[in-house]
Simulated assay, not measured.
Amino acid sequence: MSAPVLAAYSYCETVTGRQARNFAYGIRLLPTAKRRAMSAVYAFSRRVDDIGDGTLAPEVKAQRLDETRALLARIRDGEVAEDDTDPVAVALAHAAHRFPIPLGGLDELIDGVVMDLNGQTYETWDDLKVYCRCVAGAIGRVSLGVFGTEPGARGAERAPEYADTLGLALQLTNILRDVREDAADGRTYLPADDLAKFGCSAGFDGPTPPPGSDFAGLVHFEVRRARALFAEGYRLLPMLDRRSGACVAAMAGIYRRLLDRIERDPEGVLRGRVSLPGREKAYVAVRGLSGLDARTVSRAALRGRA
């Protein structure tokens, strides 16, 4: 591997270590080549997200997203040289050459950020699923290109579907965690049908639920939906090699524990950002590396009880 490519990967790993939080705890379980490739995927995805979440004017954001999409096309067409001045492009191009990464998934991520830019709202869960598949399910499918499936794995043809579903589970957990923060930014992701059902259509602009609402009922309803998605998505684990399975189990395990916290104290998401302490994330990662979580969840998934 050339010095410019190594430097590009090092840059992406630094970005991942500083900004990835939950993601970083999972990918540290991967062998070097896969960890580097996942860091490149993260760094590119982070760039797209930062454009959407930044303070630029909407028309400038749209231009930056178009430029990023054009860069992705150059990567896909093999037009990024190793001495390119953009380390993220260099690393992702190398990773895509080494692994069968479906780069179209990153186009879908850009599509999802464009939805945010356009202020799109969602009437039903089916509507929201389209967004979640763009910003999270697609990343699951992209990641599967790095992980690969075990030769002869039973049902491997459905692996992209399960990776997509696991991404939906993670994204719905994120939406629940960030409900007040998103509301402050003028964004509402939870389906309007669900908000109306539980008297929460007024939105979330403070540390307490809307008057007369059943906010806890809303959260528990969405938690059950997320758990069903996790149960389906975990069917991916038996199809992966040990370290890739450990990585996925660790990342998903962190989000499942986060979901547990939200379920126990629904109004906590209105008072502040709900998160896991670093020691608990590290514990989940160690269990993933040892195979404990992967084996436990794999058995449950095969029985349909994850």
Rank of each mutant, 00 (worst) to 15 (best):
M1Q: 10
M1L: 12
S2L: 02
S10V: 00
Y11E: 13
C12A: 14
E13C: 10
Q19M: 02
A20P: 10
N22W: 03
A24N: 11
Y25G: 04
G26H: 06
I27C: 05
L30N: 04
T32N: 02
K34V: 00
R35L: 12
M38A: 05
S39F: 06
A40F: 13
V41P: 12
A43G: 13
S45F: 07
S45G: 11
R46L: 10
V48L: 09
G52Q: 09
G54V: 07
G54Q: 07
K61L: 11
Q63A: 15
D66R: 14
R69W: 01
L71T: 13
I75D: 11
G78Q: 05
G78N: 06
A81E: 15
D83T: 14
V88M: 05
A91P: 12
A91F: 12
A91M: 11
L92S: 09
H94E: 15
H94K: 14
H97E: 15
F99P: 13
P102M: 06
L103S: 13
L106F: 07
D107M: 04
E108Q: 15
G112M: 06
V114L: 15
G119D: 12
Y122G: 01
W125C: 01
D127L: 08
D127I: 09
D127A: 15
L128I: 05
C134S: 08
G137A: 05
G137S: 05
A138Y: 03
I139S: 11
I139P: 04
G140V: 11
G140Y: 12
V142T: 14
S143D: 04
G145D: 07
G145L: 08
G145P: 13
V146Y: 04
F147P: 00
F147V: 00
E150V: 15
P151H: 03
G152R: 01
A156C: 07
E161I: 03
E161M: 10
L166D: 07
L168F: 01
A169W: 05
Q171V: 05
T173Y: 08
I175Y: 01
I175K: 02
L176H: 02
D178H: 05
D182W: 02
D182V: 02
A183D: 15
A184H: 07
D185K: 13
L195T: 10
F198H: 12
G199A: 03
G199Q: 03
D205H: 14
G206P: 11
G206D: 14
T208S: 13
S213D: 02
E222R: 10
R225M: 07
E232P: 05
Y234D: 14
R235C: 09
M239I: 10
L240K: 08
L240A: 11
R242G: 06
R243Q: 12
S244L: 03
G245L: 06
A250L: 03
A252M: 09
A252P: 10
R257E: 15
R257K: 15
L259T: 03
D260P: 02
R264Y: 01
R273V: 12
R273Q: 12
V274E: 05
S275W: 04
P277D: 14
A282R: 11
Y283E: 13
V286N: 00
V286P: 00
L289I: 01
G291A: 07
L292D: 06
D293E: 15
R295S: 12
T296G: 13
V297N: 03
S298W: 04
A300L: 15
G304F: 10
